[in-house]
Nucleic acid binder design. Structure first.
Length: 495
RNA sequence: GGCGCAUUCGUCUAGUGGUUUAGGACAUUGCCCUCUCAAGGCAAAGAUCACGGGUUCGAAUCCCGUAUGCGCUACCA
């Protein structure tokens, strides 16, 4: 076999290897929008057997915190998005904290300066502000006016002498247009003349966002940039930098944003925004991932429920929509219920435990808790709901809700039914679901009563509510002694 | 202000020139099942495809305007 051919084939394979990254800035928690961006990147990587890289963009030293990094990592782990390279995972293209890459950024900037594709600018923030204000007042776009574009050595020395610290600006070419092929939006075109000489290195010596991403994406051999469409307008600037740095452009895919119910950007107002807060609310990570995938992505058969492997198998960027979507809690809850219903009872009990004990219920008899959960499984939407659904079965004392007290127990005949039931239950040989049902039905028959006339007061008396699990399983579970005591207690509400 | 992106039932969406009286899902309403609540089954209601022009025998689908929303226009990311 021809070696050269093999090499080029091999190289092409390498070049084609999918490498995507999720690059959050640790200035806040991992919210839904970020989680969804992470999800699409992760799915794309897994679908294509590529690498998913996590890079922390902490160049804004003012606002970045270590706590935020931890929260982001925790959120990603909860959702199950494992990363192949990044914090904790390591990798060959580190460091994965952008702040630690400033040396690399500066090297690239130096190269641009040397080639005169970038230059130092000594204008102060005040001067720039005045410049913009003046431009605006005269009806011109507030672009940088290029004052330091051609500085002589003397001028530069003079500024330095004044103690001015320069920024580095990219010499943006003003002719032509920059075209970007976006995998979701198609061809995007931008006039270069609308761009100004943007800053690539701040006076502190650290890179700006637009420069740092490009350098890091080149260095990390990122093949596809999948990010929120709020970055579309940044893309031409970045594309120009790729060109100046003589690097091949990655593929771009800009995914739509997620809004709250008021069509505004998601914020604190929309409730639990940190992804980890959904865990505390009793959402399942599988449901969350499934729902997030449904926001802005779909298959042509409108499938709604996806196991994670199915999602990986079916995910393509072509299935992404272009327009922003509104986060719908009701649908998330429905999906959560779907997953809870499908869940193995031992696993469900395990996940429910913290919520149950957190509500002050006794959990030492695990089998008992499990049985109680099983009885209500089909009804659970959030894990958080569980204590309220089963507490009357696990506690000795119990309260009567309004409907039970005033509607059911007050009904005519309820008192008589209850005192009869008390007698029969006392003398019942087989206090089991089956035995109870037989006895109660027999009683109805003898008395010529509709089953509802008996079942309902009995349920209300024993559970204190009008809804709940099947009556007879519930009675068996609660136990003869407590059932009898509760019936006695309930008689005081009857007329 | 300039530029960019978006616009199909309340919400998420299918749809890529004729198979569309615009399909599905959540939510809503009704019926069935049933000891209750759920779940499940069935059904209804809900979209003049943002608006206005074109192109075409024919447009939700292509083109051009307008409106609205969002984004960028920072030494934030």
């Amino acid at each position: 076999m021809n070696t050269r051919l093999t090499n080029s084939y091999y190289r092409r394979k390498i070049m084609k290897k999918v490498r995507v990254r999720f690059a959050p800035s640790p200035t806040g928690c991992l919210h839904l929008g970020g989680a969804r961006t992470a999800l699409f990147n992760w799915l794309f990587a897994r679908h294509n057997k590529g690498s998913f890289i996590l890079r922390i963009e902490d160049t804004d030293k003012e606002r970045s915190t270590k706590e935020a990094v931890d929260v982001i990592l925790k959120g990603l782990k909860w959702l199950g998005f494992d990363w192949d390279e990044g914090p904790e995972a390591g990798g060959d293209y580190g460091p994965y904290f952008q702040a630690q890459r400033s040396g690399i950024h500066r090297e690239y900037a130096d190269k641009l300066i040397k080639e005169d594709r970038a230059y130092y600018c000594y204008c102060s923030p005040e001067e720039l502000e005045a410049m913009r204000k003046e431009a605006r007042e005269n009806g011109r776009p507030p672009k940088y006016n290029g004052r330091c574009r051609r500085l002589s050595d003397e001028q530069r020395k003079e500024y330095e002498g004044q103690g001015r610290k320069p920024v580095a600006r990219f010499r943006t070419k003003q002719e032509g247009a920059t075209k970007i092929n976006d995998l979701i939006h198609g061809e995007l075109s931008f006039e270069n003349s609308l761009l100004d000489d943007f800053v690539i290195l701040k006076s502190s010596g650290t890179a700006t966002y637009n420069f740092a991403v490009v350098v890091d994406d080149i260095e990390m051999k990122i093949s596809h940039v999948i990010r929120g469409d709020d970055h579309i307008s940044n893309t031409p600037r970045q594309a120009l930098l790729y060109g100046a740095l003589d690097a091949a452009l990655p593929e771009f895919a800009h995914i739509p944003m997620i809004f709250g119910s008021d069509k505004a950007k998601l914020s604190k107002r929309h409730g639990a925004v940190a992804v980890t807060m959904y865990e505390d609310e009793g959402y399942l990570n599988e449901a969350m991932v499934n729902y997030l995938a449904l926001l802005g992505w779909s298959t042509s058969d409108s499938q709604q429920v996806f196991e994670i492997d199915d999602l990986i198998k079916k995910f393509t960027l072509g299935g992404c929509s272009k327009s922003a979507s509104i986060f719908d809690f009701q649908k998330l809850e429905w999906l959560n219920g779907e997953y809870i219903r499908k869940m193995d009872i031992d696993e469900l009990t395990e996940k429910a435990m913290p919520f149950i004990s957190g509500a002050g219920l006794r959990v030492d008899d695990r089998e008992r808790v499990k049985k109680a959960v099983l009885m209500e499984q089909e009804k659970i939407k959030l894990l958080k709901d569980i204590p309220g659904l089963i507490d009357f079965m696990l506690k000795d004392d119990m309260e009567y809700d309004d409907r039970a007290k005033n509607k059911v127990l007050k009904k005519e005949g309820a008192g008589e039914v209850l005192s009869d039931m008390l007698e029969r239950i006392k003398g019942l040989d087989d206090f089991s679901e089956k035995g109870l049902e037989e006895a109660v039905r027999k009683y109805c028959e003898e008395k010529g009563l509709k089953t509802g006339k008996v079942f309902h007061p009995l349920r209300a008396a024993v559970s204190g509510r009008t809804t709940g699990p099947g009556l007879f399983v519930m009675l068996e579970f609660i136990g003869r002694e407590r059932v009898m005591k509760r019936i006695e207690d309930a008689m005081k509400y009857t007329q």
